[in-house]
Design a protein around this nucleic acid. Structure first.
Ligand SMILES: [Mn+2]
Ligand SMILES: [Mn+2]
Ligand SMILES: [Mn+2]
Ligand SMILES: [Mn+2]
Lengths: 222, 222
DNA sequence: TAAATATTTTAGGCAAATCTAAATTATTTA
DNA sequence: TAAATAATTTAGATTTGCCTAAAATATTTA
């Protein structure tokens, strides 16, 4: 059920992520995500169907098989563990690691990834707050909500970011907000939908709606 | 001068290593090293010639261009740094790392390898004792000799091994010999060409000619 | 040096992954 | 519901990397 090419793995992962966001995924969705053409996607869908990782009926749609999902989770696991390594051990910024992890996720050694996991202390979340599947493909999901949906007076910890852009990282670094930072909503201004928040006892300031939309929080401990 | 495929990189590295061992390299040599066929090698030689990494004239021979050598040293650098990482940080045995490094050496990020180098403490030699080229492609060569060529009474440190087999590793582990271990030649037996050696003050024993041939030593400090 | 042998290259073909353009099928809209 | 539009698939090419068999060239040997 293995011996998949890097290209096939990238398709499987793309379909997995698209399915997470919206259970019905189209040929065009995949083409857009992978910067390729619909005709190329159709070719690949037929191959993935033959390889049993996809259930595909032409013109009717497709979805990952159980085996396909297992494969996808394995790639996601590798991607996120490598991202964690790059940020924690090699001092990369979270905005720099995605492209590198996109290559590292295809290194095939099974034992390598298990040892890397141990070396890193078996992290449960990557630098963007996304959960790292365990070796069985189990994902520890956090009950997280968008910061704009949190009621006034409540406190929760930043658990994930909705974007990996350099611009967001720059802003968060400047405001000393990171994954794990506790945030309390102090006030909401309806004029521009900005929010007044408190991070530590002495840190109280206003953030834009755009920024709040890019932050997810949870009351669970990370 | 970049955008080389993994396959092209593997050919360049193979030609580099073959040139190190013997300055004239044949099509068949490359085919043997890469487990492929002479006709495939010829195809690739033409492509590498077009890409300026190889000087090639049909039926007359070929050799890496300066640019080709630069590329080769970059791949060797990545290969050996990753091997060092696998052994030092992830507790792999030296006999397990080659295949994994064979994949990792093709990860493209320039900054990744520089940060990895720093993270590892800028090692000069890989787990097999082979020198790691610096970021400019400079190699720190040690004046090393084969253990069988060392005179009686002299002491030197193990600097490299001539094989990466599990069998050799098992034997060296059992005899407590590693890269850096000082060895003194005590006696040579002409009957079977075995050698009596001393490692630490209280460790004195005989090794076979086969084992001695697999060990290289240097008087310089590692 | 001429024949035998070995090496290298060419010819022709195949599979993976991609593309554009055209055809087919599904969905929307009037 | 029929036409228009959108989505998907097919047809036919291209590039990379590889193969086998045959041809060309180089080297060795008698
Ligand atoms: Mn990828
Ligand atoms: Mn991530
Ligand atoms: Mn390789
Ligand atoms: Mn090595």
């Amino acid at each position: 059920m293995d011996n998949l090419s890097t290209t096939e793995e990238n398709y499987i992962k793309a379909i997995y992520h698209l399915q997470q966001a919206d259970s019905t995924v189209s040929t065009n969705d995949v083409a857009a995500k992978l910067n390729t053409k619909a005709a190329s996607v159709t070719d690949m869908l037929k191959r993935l169907n033959t390889k049993q990782v996809l259930n595909y009926e032409k013109y009717r749609g497709f979805s990952l098989s159980d085996e396909g999902e297992r494969v996808a989770l394995g790639i996601v696991r590798k991607h996120r563990l490598w991202e964690f390594f790059l940020v924690e051990k090699l001092q990369f910024g979270w905005d720099e690691v995605h492209a590198i992890a996109e290559e590292l996720e295809h290194i095939t050694s099974k034992v390598l990834i298990e040892r890397l996991d141990n070396f890193l202390g078996n992290p449960k979340f990557d630098p963007h707050g996304d959960p790292i599947p365990d070796s069985n493909g189990k994902i520890q999901t956090l009950p997280q909500i968008n910061l704009v949906d949190m009621p006034i007076g409540e406190t929760a910890k930043v658990s994930a970011v909705g974007s990996q852009s350099t611009e967001l990282l720059e802003l968060l670094t400047h405001k000393k907000i990171a994954i794990g930072t506790p945030i309390t909503i102090k006030k909401k201004f309806s004029f521009d939908n900005s929010l007044e928040i408190e991070t530590y006892s002495d840190q109280r300031f206003t953030i834009s709606r755009e920024l709040a939309l890019a932050l997810f929080v949870t009351k669970q401990q990370l």
